Amino acid sequence: MSAVFEKPPLWRRAAPLLQGFDGPLAFAVFLLAGAGLLAMYSSGFDHGTRFVDHGRNMLIAGFVMFVVAQIPPQRLMALAVPLYVLGVSLLVAVAIFGITKKGAKRWVNVGIVIQPSELLKIATPLMLAWWFQKREGQLRPLDFLVAGALLLLPVGLIMKQPDLGTSLLVMAAGLSVIFFAGLPWRLIVPPFLLVLVGMVLLVAFEPQLCEAGNRWPVLHDYQQQRICTLLDPGKDPLGKGFHIIQGMIAIGSGGLFGKGFMQGTQTHLEFIPERTTDFIFAAYSEEFGLAGNLLLIAGFVFLILRGFAIALEGSTLFARLMAGAVTMIFFTYAFVNMGMVSGILPVVGVPLPFISYGGTAMVTLGLALGILMSIARTKRLVQS
């Protein structure tokens, strides 16, 4: 009689929660997280509790991923409009009575101090995927214009803070949804060519455009300075060009196989600024060299390819668009961070996924992974 009421072991009760998880995606994240812990221990062991906090943030992100993975995509779609409205409302609140730090108004106190722009990294593509799901089978040019307006509203509010890095991430995620929804190529090619011509002209006329006192429209002064510094960091090697120059020195000095774990002189002599956050890739490159960089890039490439594979297998248009957008978030994070540290992109506040220190960004990554896992898990459970 006792056997009838005997509880099954804990592992058997937990098994349904783990059923359907995507093994290759989890493996890629595990490898990148391991590289992140190595890099953080080396660059942040003498930086207070950075390493311990980084490990804690990874555990929190893992918990968020596990919880979100249990939510079917249909329920995630029901959260799209509320999350978007909440996020935009908080951005408006930031603009009206936000908290200013270091010249930027990016935070608001709602009992606790939060940075609403982080929420929009997920809420914006979620809203756009919801919009195109509702318009499936009857898309018109007007629908793409509405999607553009839904994207430009949060991007404009974030740029006003100013926060160029986050606005680029939100823009990239939103544009990927619009592109994957079927934006015609005739609307893609002209803006692309315009940007390309603008970049060529910027490089060609850099001496005149970056003259002292020459003010660019639209961009803030610090954003203009970052672009000019990228074009010629040697103009101010001990000032605004210091970040880029030291990052390139660290990457170059790593050579083929690096100086070895904990042996980076640029890192430990504190020549690399923000070595545990935005510029941790420079510290990693110095110690692990080109070989280590190639392995790290391979990990990101595998993660991105797996994300696109999950997107192709999505059971609904919403699932496919959301998985594609989340995958593009990882690509944009990695590309922009590595590009700015390597001196091919302006310096913006974009962390390297799983490697850089940052609690809010890590939770956002956990949420994004949870969405990917949810889409993959739902497809597998239906097939089984």
Rank of each mutant, 00 (worst) to 15 (best):
F5H: 07
F5D: 14
L10I: 15
W11S: 12
R12C: 02
R12N: 13
R12T: 11
Q19P: 02
G20P: 09
F21I: 12
D22Y: 05
L31S: 03
L31C: 11
L38V: 15
Y41S: 13
G44N: 14
R50W: 04
H54T: 05
M58K: 01
L59I: 11
I60H: 07
A61S: 13
V68R: 13
M77N: 14
L83K: 00
Y84P: 09
V85T: 06
G87Q: 00
V94D: 00
I96R: 12
F97M: 09
G98L: 02
G98I: 08
R106I: 02
W107Y: 10
N109V: 08
G111P: 08
Q115D: 03
L119H: 01
L120A: 04
M127I: 05
R135P: 07
V146T: 11
A149N: 03
L150E: 01
I158A: 00
L169G: 06
G174A: 03
L175I: 14
I178E: 03
A181L: 04
P190C: 01
P190F: 01
L193I: 14
V195M: 11
V195I: 15
V200Q: 10
L202I: 13
Y222L: 09
Y222N: 12
L230E: 05
P233Y: 08
P237R: 14
L238S: 12
F242T: 12
G247P: 07
G252V: 11
S253N: 14
K259M: 11
K259W: 11
M262F: 15
T265S: 13
T267Q: 12
H268T: 08
H268A: 06
L269W: 02
E270P: 04
R275P: 09
F279H: 12
F279V: 06
F281L: 10
A282P: 06
E287Q: 14
A298Q: 02
F300Q: 03
V301R: 05
F302W: 12
A309I: 04
E313F: 05
R320A: 01
M322A: 02
A325W: 00
A325N: 00
M328E: 10
I329T: 08
F330V: 10
T332V: 08
M338C: 04
V341L: 02
V341S: 04
V341I: 10
S342F: 07
V348E: 08
G349V: 07
P353G: 06
F354V: 09
G366F: 05
A368T: 09
G370D: 10
M373T: 13
K379A: 15
R380Y: 02
